[in-house]
């Protein structure tokens, strides 16, 4: 069961703006999804190794070489706001 205040808390963590009406709707549908999810409890998983990756392989490592070149102009060409090569955002407090 997810309350509206749960929804508001996780919405803030996820940086989503959700108004009262939406939080009601989401708390309903998310609670139903959570009930579905809790069907997992039917299975005893104690002692089972968690499986984060579908293939059982180790990390491949690359050599320490610089392979990328400066593409700032191109990459900033698609940015919402830049100046003097910097990405602009509302003032960061700190």
């Amino acid at each position: 069961m997810l309350t509206q205040s749960d929804v508001e808390r996780i919405a803030h963590l996820a940086r989503l703006e959700i108004d009262q009406g939406e939080s009601k709707v989401f708390s309903d549908s998310l609670s139903r999804i959570l009930a579905l999810i809790e069907e997992m409890n039917a299975v005893d998983t104690s002692g089972i190794e968690p499986m984060a990756h579908p293939q059982d392989v180790g990390l491949r490592l690359r050599e320490d070489e610089v392979t990328e070149t400066n593409r700032r102009a191109e990459l900033q060409g698609i940015a919402p706001a830049t100046e003097d090569g910097l990405y602009l955002v509302p003032r960061v407090v700190g």
Binding site: V66, E68, R71, L75
Partner: peptide, 22 residues
């Protein structure tokens, strides 16, 4: 020489965002 997860240079002191790859 390069970053931990990309091939961009990890050198200090370059012009802003010239070493920020995709």
């Amino acid at each position: 020489a390069s970053k931990i997860f990309s091939g961009a240079s990890a050198m200090y002191g370059s012009e802003p965002n010239t070493q920020a790859c995709a």
